[in-house]
Measured scan of single mutants.
Amino acid sequence: MDVFMKGLSKAKEGVVAAAEKTKQGVAEAAGKTKEGVLYVGSKTKEGVVHGVATVAEKTKEQVTNVGGAVVTGVTAVAQKTVEGAGSIAAATGFVKKDQLGKNEEGAPQEGILEDMPVDPDNEAYEMPSEEGYQDYEPEA
């Protein structure tokens, strides 16, 4: 019985440690998101679009440190934060509304985080759909 109880105690310690790591990862992701939003706020009209992409990228980098179902929630929060940063930029006159959601080359930025393969159960990952990809044929 002692062996059984000791095993359960060790398992509990492992769960607590994993929860603490997840909590730490979420806190880091939130900190990076805040950094990115402050970065966007300090940019001029020309830099705002690039700044919004930076927020998304920093958040995406930190999301990889967070495991399990938390990833889905962090990704949703990050996307809403990026959308909010863009709205703030438009409201303050840093950028025109028609410039939001495009990178410096004018290509749409939507789907940055949505296409990231995420499995809350950590069982399997699927690649994003290939609808947006084109076949590449090298020139002879």
Rank of each mutant, 00 (worst) to 15 (best):
L38W: 10
N65S: 01
E83F: 12
S129H: 12
P120W: 12
E104F: 13
V82I: 14
E20H: 15
E104V: 03
G84R: 06
P128L: 12
E105S: 13
G132Q: 12
A56V: 14
L38Y: 08
L113S: 13
N122H: 12
A89L: 13
P128C: 10
T64M: 14
T44M: 10
E28D: 11
T22M: 14
A124G: 14
V3I: 06
T75E: 09
K32P: 01
G31S: 15
D121V: 14
Y136R: 13
T75R: 07
A107S: 04
A107P: 09
E137A: 15
T44I: 04
E104G: 08
E114N: 08
V118G: 08
L100W: 10
A76R: 06
Q99K: 08
A17C: 09
E130Y: 13
K58Q: 05
A124C: 11
F4W: 07
V3E: 01
I112Q: 13
E139P: 14
T64Q: 03
I112M: 11
T64R: 08
G84K: 08
K21V: 06
Y125A: 06
V37P: 00
A90Y: 12
V16E: 04
G41M: 09
M5I: 00
K23A: 08
L8G: 00
K96C: 15
Y125H: 12
A140C: 14
A140E: 12
G51I: 15
G36S: 10
K6I: 11
A56K: 11
E57R: 04
I88K: 03
A90F: 07
E131H: 12
G73I: 13
A53M: 15
V40I: 01
A76H: 12
T22F: 03
I88Y: 13
A107F: 12
Q109K: 07
E126C: 14
S9F: 15
S87A: 11
T33Q: 00
P138Y: 13
A27F: 13
A76M: 02
K58P: 01
A140Y: 08
Y136T: 02
D121Y: 15
V40A: 07
G67S: 12
A19L: 15
K32H: 05
Q109A: 12
G132F: 10
K43T: 08
P117S: 10
H50R: 15
V3W: 03
E137I: 13
N122S: 13
G25A: 15
G47K: 10
I88L: 11
Q79G: 10
K21S: 12
V49G: 04
E110F: 07
A27S: 15
E13C: 11
A91N: 12
S87R: 09
H50E: 04
T64H: 05
T44P: 01
T72M: 14
G73L: 14
T22L: 10
G31N: 15
K60C: 11
H50I: 15
L100C: 06
E83A: 12
D121M: 06
A27G: 06
K23R: 08
G41H: 02
I88N: 00
K21R: 05
L100Q: 07
I88D: 06
G67R: 01
V66I: 15
K34M: 15
T59F: 15
P128W: 01
K12D: 00
T44H: 03
D119I: 02
S129A: 07
A11I: 15
G86V: 02
V48A: 04
V70D: 05
A78R: 08
K43F: 01
K58T: 13
E104C: 00
Q62G: 00
D119P: 07
E20T: 10
T44N: 02
P120E: 08
Y39C: 07
A124Q: 10
K43G: 02
A89P: 07
G73N: 11
V48K: 01
